[in-house]
């Protein structure tokens, strides 16, 4: 047992080590790409009525008059000390901005994924067990609709129906209506923080605000999960071991869930990882529509004003997040299917 734990630990360490070159690459590329962006932050931040002299003053203040290599070395040195730099537009350390904004996006994305899985996986299984039936067709229609409607459109449509016409949804004013105070920052996830302090009134307020945006995102992410579940289940159900299990007289439930579903889970989890990463990116549009103060809108705003440190910090944070995500998914593989030889690596 301890040997297995040891080998797993080693595998994890190996994985982490493997990701180091990726992160280094991201650091270099994000630095170069931000510098290659068209636009001059000094001219931008010098303001509307700036002249050449004041633009130059700003350029010096931002350290942009130094040679590129020196700028890069300064950036890397700061990074090594855990300093992501100072965002010019927000005037705060990038790390602080990310810590305050990332949880908002993660909370939204994770809620959406839970919703999406809760709907897509059962739908996929049902569709697979009854191919060609009405459930299968419903699944197909829902999936096609979900993926073909852009998120900002779904978002505005939902606001129009549930907020504007019916008046059942709360006003789309971000994470919390203005009458609530944000819960004390522990994790940054309002649902968790409010629950920790036992402030259920705020918890309900935050949950209500989450419904429309997460539904919007869930509809968008429904398609790949449902389709992948259906396809994987179909493959699993037509395999030899299922025929054997059925022939051995195992109950329908056992065959379906203990044997077929477990085997179908691997591709579903892989898809889930991919869906999570692109949902975090697709967030931007949902964030704009629902005034959600997330990481996507932060990055876009930073990009528009050529706020180098903020853009680099965002790219780096995303890279680290995906490295971690992939690691978790790899670990999940071996939990789902012990045959997955982690130790073999």
């Amino acid at each position: 047992m301890s040997a297995a734990a040891y080998s797993r630990l080693r595998a994890v360490a190996f994985r982490v080590a493997q990701s180091i070159p990726v992160v280094l690459g991201v650091v270099v590329i994000s630095f170069l790409l931000t510098r290659a962006l068209p636009g001059d932050p000094a001219a931008y931040f010098a303001g509307a009525a700036a002249d050449a002299a004041s633009i130059q003053e700003v350029r010096e203040a931002l350290g942009l008059d130094k040679p590129l290599l020196q700028q890069f070395l300064l950036y890397v040195t700061d990074l090594a000390h855990g300093d992501l730099g100072q965002s010019i537009s927000s005037g705060r350390p990038v790390a602080v901005d990310l810590v305050s904004r990332l949880p908002a996006s993660l909370e939204l994305t994770l809620t959406a994924l839970v919703l999406s899985c809760g709907l897509a996986i059962p739908l996929g299984i049902l569709a697979a067990t009854r191919p060609g039936s009405w459930v299968d067709h419903l699944c197909r229609v829902l999936v096609t609709a979900g993926v073909s409607l852009p998120t900002f459109f779904t978002g505005i449509l939902l606001i129009y129906i549930f907020y504007y016409l019916l008046g059942v949804a709360p006003s789309p004013l971000g994470r919390l209506d203005f009458i609530y105070l944000a819960p004390d920052h522990v994790t940054g996830f309002y649902l968790i923080d409010a629950a920790l302090t036992g402030d259920w009134e705020t918890w309900r307020g935050a949950a209500k605000q989450l419904i429309l945006p997460s539904t919007t995102l869930a509809l968008f992410t429904l398609a790949p999960i449902a389709r992948m579940t259906r396809a994987a289940m179909l493959t699993a159900l037509s395999s030899d071991f299922i025929r054997t299990a059925r022939a051995a007289g195992l109950s329908r439930g056992t065959v379906l869930y203990a044997y077929a579903f477990r085997n179908a889970l691997l591709p579903v989890v892989t898809t889930l990882g991919m869906v999570f990463s692109f949902a975090l990116g697709a967030n931007v549009l949902v964030e704009k529509v629902f005034a959600w103060p997330g990481i996507g809108s932060y990055a876009v705003e930073a990009l528009v004003v050529s706020d180098y440190a903020a853009v680099q910090g965002f790219v780096l944070a995303m890279a680290l997040l995906f490295v971690a995500l992939n690691l978790v998914i790899d670990l999940l593989y071996s939990v789902i299917d012990p045959r997955f030889g982690f130790a073999a690596k």
Binding site: Y164, S171, L173, E287, V289, A291, P293, S297
Partner: peptide, 12 residues
């Protein structure tokens, strides 16, 4: 309150 989407502002 910052509400980036003009459509949302209009509904509000």
């Amino acid at each position: 309150r910052e509400v980036p989407s003009p459509a949302t502002r209009r509904a509000l």
